[in-house]
Design a protein around this nucleic acid. Structure first.
Lengths: 146, 146
DNA sequence: AATATCCGATGCATTATACAACTAAAATTT
DNA sequence: AAATTTTAGTTGTATAATGCATCGGATATT
């Protein structure tokens, strides 16, 4: 097994290359899936929904975005009537974000399209492969450098 | 195994969510790894290098970018002296792109940083897991909708 | 009480991007 | 061979996304 370190290196290169390719294509792909809802807004809305009630700071940390970027995106979402802000009664600096009914609904329909696309794309995969791939991604993201 | 379809669905959701999170963070991560070289330029340069000699159209197709975007990025790379364009003698419409020595070198040093980051990040992974993850990513990207 | 820290907003500059219109060079059709 | 269509790449214009710096208001620390 003298070649193992080199094989590791090769795998790392592939991972790096393929993740980059994916990231680069993501915008175009997202634009196809939901032409109406701006890409980042959709992502933030989804996260707000996923963790029912979160703060702008949480979003910034999770997606490694500047707080100013998040501030504007959230403002846009509020303007579209998809997100509500409620000041935290205990700490007046904080605004807790929640999807509005319209936001939940917009998310649901987009989510449906998205799921359909993924289902078609990954239809050939076995349930085990899907579970395994999901685990790898979770593991990869969990070791995210802070 | 009545729950299998639901489990598939859950895996799909995780994959979707984690890939999105990764894509969203990619810009910030890239900025940390090579603050000098603009994000997209680096990506394109890497691809030009990987497939020794490619056309702007290839880049656009591979990363799902508009040709105008690629045109500008390539122009920037040329201005930085990292890429050369050579008209194809057989077809004067085509410009074949190659990294310059400076481009190759810039890529090498960045690549070294990148590899180090990945090595640290994925140091705990077994060679098998890395290979497996790499295969999943290749498989995922190969089924990219066109 | 004074100071420091935290949350979010805003002004400003820059990067990345798409779409549309254009030029030039093949390739195809007539 | 001439006309038309397709292909490769550039440029003009508009917009989205982003970061940095700064600021104002609130809470926490000393």
């Amino acid at each position: 097994m003298a070649g193992a370190p080199r094989e590791r290196e090769e795998s790392l290169d592939v991972i790096q290359r393929e993740l980059t390719a994916f990231a680069r294509r993501a915008r175009a792909a997202a634009a196809r899936l939901h032409p109406d809802l701006p890409l980042v807004s959709y992502t933030l809305l989804a996260h707000i929904d996923y963790r029912q009630g979160c703060r702008a700071t949480d979003l910034a940390a999770h997606y490694m975005l500047d707080k100013s970027t998040v501030s504007r995106q959230v403002a846009a979402l509020e303007k579209l009537g998809l997100v509500e802000r409620h000041p935290d009664p205990d700490d007046h600096r904080i605004q807790v974000l929640h999807p509005t009914p319209a936001g939940t609904q917009a998310l649901a329909s987009t989510q449906a399209c998205r799921r359909a696309a993924y289902r078609e794309r990954l239809g050939e995969w076995t349930a085990d492969d899907l579970a395994c791939f999901a685990q790898y991604l979770l593991r990869y993201n969990s070791t995210d450098p802070r």
